[in-house]
């Protein structure tokens, strides 16, 4: 079962990276949990108590079939169902760019979670840059399979942008794990060579 779930997640290196960080027996909130497979994996492999938030009715139904707890919710709203620090980890994998105000969501994320794991597509990646630079069109790729006019990704950002936002929101970056085809390059020059990046963050106490 665990192997089957991992197989389903094999095309999501960011989730597999997040999976390695989350310790056993903790409470995890997955924002935009999709079909719930990741939370199910955490539950089976690490005895994690999970809760997913999902907007799409179809995905909620898939999550129920997967067998996780899932709540219908819109990430454009406050996470007012959750008390401060009521989760050990909040997971936001490739979702931040779809909300109206990523800054508002991030503040909520570090409020309800002791720590958060955020992954997103790095728009400053060389492939994206070169499409914009050489072709002069909005980049499209395997990670960005949409046209500029129909994309749900309304707030794409770069690794550097994210660092700046964290700093301005008083959020501490605990760990930064750039992911790319060429691991050496992605680690040396993340903003240029990482396709995706996982950040472990927490609220900086004043």
């Amino acid at each position: 079962m665990v192997d089957k779930l991992k197989q389903q997640l094999s095309k999501r290196p960011d989730i597999l990276t997040i999976n390695k960080i989350i310790p056993p027996d903790c409470r995890v909130l997955d924002l935009g949990c999709g079909n719930g497979v990741f939370l199910k994996l955490l539950e089976l492999e690490k005895n994690v108590r999970g809760l997913g938030i999902e907007l799409s009715q179809d995905k909620i139904m898939e999550s129920i079939a997967t067998g996780i707890s899932v709540i219908h919710g819109d990430l454009n709203n406050k996470l007012d169902f959750a008390d401060d620090y009521s989760f050990d980890y909040v997971v936001v994998s490739n979702t931040l760019q779809e909300v109206k105000r990523p800054d508002h969501l991030l503040q909520e994320v570090v409020r309800v979670g002791k720590k958060a794991l955020v992954s997103f597509i790095n728009f400053a990646n060389i492939k994206t840059r070169s499409q914009l630079f050489l072709k002069g069109t909005m980049p499209e790729s395997k990670n960005l399979p949409y046209h500029w006019y129909d994309t749900p990704n309304i707030h794409l950002a770069t690794i550097r942008d994210f660092r700046d936002l964290c700093s301005s929101l008083n959020i501490k970056i605990i760990k930064e794990i750039p992911l790319g085809k060429n691991n050496f390059l992605a680690k040396s020059l993340p903003n240029l060579f990482a396709a995706n990046c996982v950040f472990e963050i927490t609220k900086l106490e004043k």
């Binding site: 009715q57 996780i68 707890s69 219908h72 169902f81 008390d83």
Partner: peptide, 18 residues
């Protein structure tokens, strides 16, 4: 109802069906 259950750390799933 769902918020109150979550506050109590209950296992709850919720869907508003269109």
């Amino acid at each position: 109802l769902v918020k109150a259950l979550l506050k109590n750390q209950c296992e709850v799933s919720y869907c508003e069906v269109q």
